[in-house]
Nucleic acid binder design. Structure first.
Length: 581
DNA sequence: GCCGTTTTCGGCCCGACTGTTTTCAGTCG
């Protein structure tokens, strides 16, 4: 329901903008944004706390709260229906065309009766657009091109897919002697799970050379525009990349500015204004009388936060979801870092089909600087993954015992990734589970159950004294499979009571728990573990994606159990679950 | 329509780029 309401509010904002209503568009937009990012359903909030509860949402006041209630009760909003009648246009579709905004939509509708992308394409093809005031041939071409790109579905890219590409582009640029500093900003730097486009900043004395080199890279398929400050291209895989050349003295402020997110930046500027400063991508300036400006920061990003009276915030937290308020009070915690990770406990060795892989995994784990590694193959219910049965697990235990004797200075744990069956039971006998160092359990079948049943299923598994960790709790595969429906609050309460650890699956297609859920789990005092869930050696490198996600969820070292030493974590697993935390 | 260590009324982030004109409106991030 939150997404539905957010979408309506965004549309209201656009329509009001068309009607040139002042300020209200921003209000609706802001409310839509908050509601979209909300963890709890507005309906639940309303049922629990009434209209006052809704008004607690940032950007939601009396008026908008009433509109939300109207939607909850009647499934529609009268004012919105009325606006729609005045402007019966598919706005959300049309605004997604690059270069088309509310004002143009209004003009196109009034003069050409354009209601959707199809109409717009026809109008542009027939040369109608360029007959309108302030519209020319170039706009017409731009619109046609925009439609072309829209049709090729301008979807977002997985962070994991963008990561390697970004590294490649950065290293190409760094080989060029004309570039001094290089940094990728935007949602990539904030390590969002999906990326719309990539922003790269460089410092250079020779912008022309850098831009020429940039557009000539083999990955570049299309150049949107090329200037000395900004060049925009599309790569052959469809990813849009903007390259910006900035002055050394503005590098920090440009990095801050282009990292965003937008809402975070707006808050920062407001703080600057209150201090009689001005903040933009060129620096932080003190504004004196007669509009004289003195730069007080810009070269260094940290300096900007400091001068604004704020603790430094890692890019992963810059979403304007409360980080600024905490930073003002100096109460922002230290978040977990990659170097805090001491081991990986969710690792597959495909033992039933290939025996030599445990050794390879150990070698890789040592390279990563880990202190320990846990082998956790699938169990028998997952025949397709050659899951191990009870006998296999006992045999594997003996082999791991032999490794322990031969490997020095490194510790190996033996676990498994067992299946939570539909009734919540585990597909491996308790007696065998109790012989393992630890047990991960996950749902791998029957994912479309009712919310109540799925919640009950997982809770039953958590109540099993042998189940230490629940893997990929929501089962989502980003952009491919929805989360299962679960009552997350209820699960968190039981996790806390039973001492069950929740996994943050680091695979970039899962990242499950997500940032919002991590933050909530932390608030409930539930412990988490970050796991690569590697099926191949190279996938053990994915741990960092989990760490970034954990940082986005404000997790600290103490919230994540695989920051513990081997002694601590093996001791932990030996204690009864309820006495662990 | 929202919101408050300048305000319960009067403000609401800011600059670049583009295409269109010839001083600026619309869009974007």
């Amino acid at each position: 329901m939150n997404q539905e309401i957010a979408k309506i509010f965004y549309e209201i904002a656009e329509i009001l903008e068309m009607k040139e209503v002042a300020f209200k568009p921003r209000a609706y937009q802001k409310a839509a944004q908050s509601i979209q990012g909300l963890d709890e359903n507005v309906k639940t909030i309303f049922e629990k706390k009434g209209i006052k509860g809704l008004e607690e949402i940032s950007g939601v006041g009396e008026g908008i709260a009433e509109r939300i209630v109207e939607y909850i009760k009647k499934g529609k909003i009268k004012g919105y229906e009325k606006l729609k009648k005045e402007m019966p246009v598919n706005i959300s579709e049309l605004v997604s065309i690059e270069g088309v905004g509310p004002k143009l939509i209004k003009l196109f509708y009034e003069k050409l009766k354009v209601r959707n992308i199809n109409d717009l394409e026809k109008a542009a093809r027939h040369g109608k657009i360029s007959t309108l005031p302030r519209c020319g041939k170039k706009l017409e071409q731009k619109i046609l091109q925009g439609i072309e790109f829209y049709k090729k579905s301008h979807e977002r890219f997985l962070l994991g897919d963008v990561f390697e590409l970004a590294e490649k582009i950065k290293s190409r640029l760094s080989e060029l002697k004309e570039t001094e500093k290089i940094e990728a900003a935007g949602s990539f730097r904030r390590k969002k799970e999906t990326i719309g486009d990539l922003d790269i900043l460089v410092v250079s004395e020779k912008p022309k050379k850098v831009m020429d080199f940039f557009v000539s890279m083999p990955e570049v398929r299309h150049v949107y525009g090329k200037g000395l400050k900004k060049t925009m291209v599309r790569l052959s895989n469809g990813l849009d990349v903007d390259l910006r050349v900035v002055d050394e003295k503005s590098f920090g402020s440009a990095l801050q500015y282009f990292t965003g997110n937008k809402a975070h930046n707006i808050e920062l500027r407001k703080i600057a204004l209150k201090k009689k400063y001005k903040l933009n991508e060129y620096g932080l300036f003190k504004v004196g009388s007669k509009k004289s400006e003195v730069r007080i920061a810009g070269q260094n990003e940290k300096e900007i936060y400091k001068k604004l009276g704020l603790q430094f915030m890692p890019p992963e937290t810059r979403e304007n979801t409360g980080e600024i308020e905490l930073a003002q009070k100096n109460k922002l915690s230290e978040f977990i870092e990659e170097k805090d990770i001491k081991g990986d406990l969710h690792i597959h060795s495909h033992w039933k089909v290939k025996k030599g892989l445990i050794k390879e995994r150990i070698k890789k784990a040592k390279e990563l600087g880990y202190e320990y590694l846990g082998i956790s193959d699938h169990t028998k219910f997952l025949a397709i993954e050659h899951g191990l049965n009870e006998q296999d697990l006992l045999k594997q235990s003996k082999e791991i015992e032999r490794f322990r004797l031969h490997v020095s200075g490194f510790k190996i744990l033996h676990g498994c990734e067992a299946n939570i069956l539909t009734d919540g039971s585990i597909d491996i006998d308790d007696k065998v589970l109790s012989k393992l160092d630890y047990v991960i359990a996950g749902v791998h079948s029957q994912m479309k159950m009712s919310k109540e049943k799925m919640t009950e299923r997982i809770i039953t598994a958590m109540k099993n004294p042998h189940v230490d960790i629940i893997a990929h709790l929501t089962g989502r595969v980003i952009q491919r499979r929805e989360e299962y429906e679960i009552d997350f609050d209820k699960i968190l309460r039981v996790a806390k009571e039973t001492g069950t650890i929740l996994e943050i699956n680091a695979n970039p297609v899962r990242l499950d728990l997500n940032d919002v859920k991590i933050r909530k789990a932390k608030e409930f005092g539930v412990k988490m573990i970050i796991s690569s869930d590697a099926h191949q050696n190279e996938q053990m490198d994915l741990m960092k994606f989990g760490v970034w996600q954990a940082r986005r969820g404000w997790a600290e070292k103490k919230d994540i159990v695989n920051t513990m030493s081997f002694k601590e974590i093996s001791g932990l697993f030996k204690k009864p679950k309820k006495k662990r935390f």
